[in-house]
Design a protein around this nucleic acid. Structure first.
Lengths: 125, 125
DNA sequence: TGCACATATGAGCACTCGTGCATATGAAAG
DNA sequence: CTTTCATATGCACGAGTGCTCATATGTGCA
């Protein structure tokens, strides 16, 4: 049985390499977890929120002002980020003041920014 | 004029903090570039491809075997990754052998994996 | 208790994206 | 040149997503 390659006559050129590669790929659940993290960082609005929070603690209203989307939209995105433990918040009276969950998140952000910046400067194509 | 907040009576609680936050957020184009990178990492299939390539140099057929998607599907995803300079390839006869563009990509991957793994272990909810 | 305000949630919509099928391009072999 | 095979591309479809509007929840104040 040949599972995937419908048009390819051979399943794998180097089956040993394939086996090794399969070995290092995490299981479905972990892979999904990693993908969810990156997906969360892969939206301009959420990026704006996170980068803003990497500089200042802000409430939802202020984040709406920073991002330029509605309060509802910000709240929806914050829920996504909260569920992934990318941001945390504490109530200050009526307001909810958000911050990055930990500096790990900030590192991820700057790593991504670095890679993007490299492409910005010396893009070969 | 109150641009964004339709339901919020006040635009911003701390306008100085908002201004500082806006100051650190990159411009639209750069933000899009960063988001594109993270988005590319935010798909399980592309993650499988990248993690596999972080271990072995593989051709398209082998990547199809590793990921379990069709050759066409892999090729489509590889184009995305190529356009973002996340992977590179060289022709070996008829085959195209892919590899990570640089170790920067591997670092990003493991950073994301680390964060996901933390949540896996000590998830409070 | 009743009002005002900040945030969260639900529904609906437009849009994007991942995928497979069919097919085109390209490269070696006969 | 023709054939064969690996890879790339165009098209279409189903699923997921980000947004706003309307509304619910919750918090503090008179």
């Amino acid at each position: 049985m040949r599972p995937a390659s419908a048009h390819c006559q051979i399943d794998s050129v180097d089956s040993a390499a394939v086996d090794r590669a399969v070995g290092v790929v995490p299981d479905e659940a972990r892979l999904k977890a990693i993908a969810d993290i990156f997906s969360a960082l892969g939206d301009p609005t959420r990026l704006r929120i996170l980068i803003a929070l990497s500089c200042e603690r802000l409430c939802v209203c202020d984040l709406a002002a920073v991002t330029g989307v509605s309060q509802s939209g910000v709240s929806h995105q914050l829920r996504v980020l909260r569920d992934l433990d990318l941001v945390a918040f504490e109530r200050m009276g009526k307001r909810a003041v958000y911050r990055l969950a930990d500096e790990h998140v900030g590192i991820l952000l700057s790593q991504g920014a670095d890679h993007a910046e490299e492409r910005f400067g010396g893009d070969g194509r």
